[in-house]
Design a protein around this nucleic acid. Structure first.
Lengths: 235, 235
DNA sequence: GAGTGGTCTAGACCACTTT
DNA sequence: AAGTGGTCTAGACCACTCA
């Protein structure tokens, strides 16, 4: 262990009491001023420790009412949705990208709804496949709003994956994910090298730049092989 | 809008530059001291703003090297895994819990591995079903380590869901989730009221208390109806 | 060695909520 | 009205990392 800085010491102290069960949910944590005196440090130092614990959902703070240990039921764990190419490489496998289709076309009702544009607006649709060690790992179907990203009209996406291309050019302000499970259609099964009807993990993502949808994308993964993983702590 | 506090103003200023594209990834953000002068505030105030942006993954900071706009590719979005009963109620549906089975039994090899106990150790297995408006919403199979939670031996779980019971009694220090898709077996399909072979969303969760696994649980949701959802921002 | 961020202090005043 | 957290200041010194 290294010497913990004072604010870390305060955090650790409070967390240890909570985890040991000594301070069950609802317990009133000592006032900042008292903790500062206990630890022989400034109130700002204690404040930072408690503020971070509050940000992490470990405690709840209200002026006048003080700081209380939060009910663990209100806490949720973050799940990370990784970028496929990096994930493949992290597994020590070789990554390969293959474009299946690219077309500018009038937005279908569902695509228009998801991109937030009028039906029939010209949008770019790209379909591609990501491989790990030459076996299909992710099937991607993507719509890009040409209003927001006009430069995409000139890009073939034959060699560069759309997510890489987009991320290098555009910042984003909001993102939404929807995760579900579905049965592989014959077409999907053919691309992923599985049997029709096999379960596939479906991740849909919409990305915004200041209220306008940049892109809507649907990823399909073979359910037998692919998992989303995460680890988290309450604090 | 209300008057933002100075540190929020600094955060907003930096975020706006990044989102507008004026500061693309890799751009060097002004030094704390310079920003403090620009905003006419103390360096600590700027520091807090930049520290929060760094915690959120928007910028990367290194001593001597300064603060740089992070590559958006390194950012990930959090997904919240909600508690089922609350989720059902949030949809305006009525929630119902049904215990299917409860038994203390020697840990099978796979259960032992997941709980981190020797094979054959006595563990508690609970199987139950969660309903929304009387239709099955989630099938749950759970193993509880009796070494860590001896009190569970006396609880029937006939009326109280294990997660609620556990959360009211025990704090936790770590959690891991694995999300995948699988095909419903005949038994699973029967419980969930779907056809065998239909895609189901599978969420596995392990919860630790200081290096010891409290419980391992596997949730199965009908893929046709259930989705995990999230929304996030880069900062 | 020099320049950046990381942390801390010992105050101060403000904002909010409960009494 | 009083008590709590929320924020800020104007310094200070330390830790790390690059040149």
């Amino acid at each position: 262990m290294s010497r913990p800085s004072p604010y870390r010491a305060v955090k650790a102290h409070v967390l240890a009491r909570i985890r040991s069960g000594e301070w069950p949910p609802g317990t009133l944590v000592p006032r900042e001023e008292d903790l500062a005196e206990t630890f022989g440090c400034a109130r700002m130092t204690v404040h930072r420790a408690l503020r971070e614990l509050a940000d992490e959902g470990v405690v709840e703070r209200r002026r006048r009412a003080g700081t209380r240990v939060a009910l663990p039921t209100t806490r949720t764990a973050p799940v990370e949705i990784p970028r496929v190419d990096r994930e493949v490489e992290a597994m020590g496998a070789s990554y390969r990208y293959l474009r299946l289709a690219r077309a500018t076309e009038p937005a279908s009702p569902s695509a228009a709804a998801r991109l937030g544009v009028p039906e029939g607006t010209e949008v770019l649709r790209v379909e591609c496949l990501h491989h790990a060690n030459d076996s299909p790992f992710q099937l991607e179907e993507r719509w890009i709003s040409l209003d927001v990203v006009p430069a995409a009209r000139e890009e073939s996406f034959a060699d560069v994956a759309p997510n890489v291309w987009l991320l290098e050019r555009l910042p984003w302000s909001d993102v939404e994910h929807v995760i579900g499970a579905t049965n592989a259609t014959r077409k999907v099964a053919g691309h992923l090298g599985i049997e029709p009807g096999e379960a596939v993990l479906e991740v849909e993502r919409r990305t915004w730049l200041e209220r306008r949808v940049i892109t809507y994308v649907r990823f399909l993964h073979p359910g037998r092989f692919y998992r989303l993983r995460t680890a988290g702590r309450p604090g």
